[in-house]
Amino acid sequence: MIFGTLIKQLFSKPATNPFPARYMPKSVTALLAKVAAGKATIHPPVPAPADLRGKIAYDREKCIGCQLCIRVCPAKVIEFLPENKKIRMYVARCTFCAQCVDACPVDALATTPNFLLADTDRFSKNLIVD
């Protein structure tokens, strides 16, 4: 029967991971700055593995403008900037397959474990990589 488990769970910590803040803050960056300064506390987020496929990082200097990443991107995230032969990525469209990272011949692209990308504006600074 399940009663043993029920009684055990009644007196143990719930399995739910709480949302970092009690309520959605007006500005996430402001809250994180406060936490860094020690003025506010949040529930520590669940650690993500270092090789999580999150937001793509772009090394502008290394990029040679070969456009291979644009050819393999399934979601048409990447825009080519012909004037200086560089790329711009619109993260709001990204599906985080990291195929562009595999395709890049000069390792100008890399995955980061950053997954906190929720935003109300799809063209916000946080969601455009160039």
């Binding site: 993500a48 593995p49 999580l52 599906t95 397959c97």
Partner: peptide, 15 residues
């Protein structure tokens, strides 16, 4: 799965 593939769903493993 997240540890092995880098994501909880949509593992992007086979090519």
């Amino acid at each position: 799965l997240e540890e092995l593939t880098g994501n909880r769903v949509d593992y992007a493993i086979p090519i």
